[in-house]
Amino acid sequence: MVSRDATSGTATGGPRRGKRKKLAPSQKYEIYTSTLTSSATQRELAEQYGVDRTTIRAICATAKQGALDALAAAVPGRRGKSAEQAELDEARAEIDRLKATICEQAVVLHLERGKDSWD
């Protein structure tokens, strides 16, 4: 039989289910650096900040992916672009390429068929 905690309604020793705790970006960064330096375990950090261990893992995974994206976008000697900015630049280059192709095709079509009357 599982004993219940009268105040929270959960099994004793289990995580409290209730209102989600919102952490500030600075707290998330602090959690990430603490796991990198091994100054605290994920369990200790979860208890300290009042969140679940899966939240700690998600924060670390997000921070790691963000750092990898930033490093991938960085070019030596240039100011780095965000992944979104790099993708936007690629899309604009593709639009310019497609515009040029359409113009070339229109010229070829005009030369082959000539100008038709509007009638």
Rank of each mutant, 00 (worst) to 15 (best):
R20D: 11
K81R: 08
G77K: 12
L111T: 13
A91F: 15
R92A: 04
G9L: 03
A74P: 03
T37Q: 14
A106H: 05
R57W: 00
T41N: 02
L109V: 04
K21H: 14
S82E: 01
P76R: 15
G66S: 14
C103G: 08
G80R: 11
Y49G: 03
Q42H: 12
L98I: 14
D52Y: 06
L45E: 01
T10W: 14
D5Y: 15
P15A: 03
S26F: 14
V51N: 01
V2G: 08
T55R: 06
D52W: 04
A58V: 03
E90Q: 09
E90M: 10
K19P: 01
D96L: 10
D119H: 03
A93H: 03
G80L: 05
K64S: 07
V107C: 07
D96T: 05
P76Y: 04
R4N: 12
K64P: 00
E90G: 06
T33C: 10
R16S: 02
S8G: 02
I102L: 12
A58F: 00
P25L: 11
V107Y: 04
K28A: 11
L45A: 03
Y49M: 07
R113I: 04
Y32C: 06
K28I: 10
D5M: 01
A46E: 07
K21C: 12
I56Y: 01
G13D: 06
R20T: 09
V2S: 13
Q48K: 13
L111I: 10
R57P: 00
L45V: 07
V2T: 12
M1H: 08
G50F: 11
A67E: 05
I56C: 02
D69Q: 08
G18Y: 08
R4K: 14
D52C: 04
T101V: 11
E84Q: 09
V75N: 06
L88Y: 13
Q105L: 15
E44N: 08
R53H: 09
K19A: 11
M1D: 06
K99T: 07
K99S: 07
Q65E: 12
T35L: 15
A67I: 00
S34N: 10
P15I: 01
Y29L: 15
E104P: 01
D89C: 12
A91V: 10
D119P: 02
K115S: 09
D69I: 01
G114T: 04
H110S: 13
S34R: 05
K81P: 00
T101H: 09
T7P: 01
T101S: 13
I95A: 05
A6I: 06
A86Q: 04
P76W: 02
A83C: 06
V75M: 11
A24Y: 15
W118V: 09
Q85V: 12
D89G: 07
Q27G: 05
L68W: 03
E87A: 14
K22H: 11
I95K: 07
Q105D: 10
A74Y: 04
A100Y: 00
P25I: 10
T41M: 06
A100H: 02
L68P: 00
V2L: 07
Y32M: 13
A61R: 15
T33F: 09
W118Y: 09
I56K: 01
R92G: 00
E47L: 15
L109C: 08
H110K: 15
E84D: 10
E94T: 03
D96Y: 04
E112F: 05
